[in-house]
Design a protein around this nucleic acid. Structure first.
Lengths: 138, 138
DNA sequence: ACCTATTTGTCCGTATGTATG
DNA sequence: CCATACATACGGACAAATAGG
């Protein structure tokens, strides 16, 4: 497992760190039960402030991937393995989409529209509005 | 097949029409070879300008979902069926993600990160990306 | 071969709302 | 507050391709 950052990149440093951990989870190099280095150690090896590392860790905790305990450090949760298996399925889908020439944007939109919760404003409802109302404006 | 729009929504009308067709393609109610209503007919039934319908049609054409010919009308392309099958796979993945509590945002991000950052000349893989030839003698 | 109707393609101008400076 | 630019939508007009009488 190797965490690297690029201080010149647009992405915030804490997000780069979090993304690095996520990608480690997805490719299987980080698994449930693994211990992340302490914030002190990691910030030293990355050359960033300790708060930046903590920010990244807390972000991952909010995503349910990391468990933080005072005096014990950071532990990867079981959810990481779940996400890892899911990302395998994602890879297969992406391969399939790419093979038929569907770009990432379209696929991401497909995902969103398949989620029942957030109804896309584009197709709000099967509401019957074939008629054009006139007297309604501002 | 039913196309509806909501004049009060913030989404542009042409985009609503296009989204309605896409959604019809994805749920299987619109298939390859189907003929869309002419712009004249559709704009009358929706209560919008013909140019707005044409704008939506041309958007779908640019996405490869619709074939437009003067004097003949608008025909759904074979790509629509491809997209329909893909959206079925998307639904399955979304179900799986939802069952483990992964929100749409995370899944969409997973998709993006799984997409190969196709920088030119960085393809050592034997990936047979199907090149889509357009110029077809008729 | 000619003509006509239909349908998309394309341009014009106008109006509106939004974002920007 | 005003000016500008841009996207959206409308209404109209004509050109070009297609189909059929």
């Amino acid at each position: 497992m190797l965490i690297t950052i690029d201080p010149a990149a647009e992405t915030p440093l804490f997000e780069q760190i979090a993304a690095s951990v996520r990608s480690g989870i997805m490719d299987g190099s980080i698994r449930a039960g693994d211990r992340m280095p302490t914030a002190k150690v990691l910030c030293a090896s990355l050359g960033v402030n300790r708060n930046t590392v903590l920010h990244a860790y807390q972000t991952l905790r909010d995503e349910g991937l990391l468990e933080l305990r005072r005096g014990r450090g950071a532990t990867i949760t079981a959810r990481a393995d779940t996400l890892s298996r899911l990302s395998e399925a994602v890879r297969e889908l992406v391969d399939r989409a790419r093979s038929v020439g569907v770009p990432a944007d379209t696929l991401a939109r497909l995902i969103r529209e398949s989620y029942p919760r957030d109804v896309p404003a584009a197709v709000p409802a099967p509401g019957p509005v074939p008629h054009h109302e006139e007297g309604e404006a501002r």
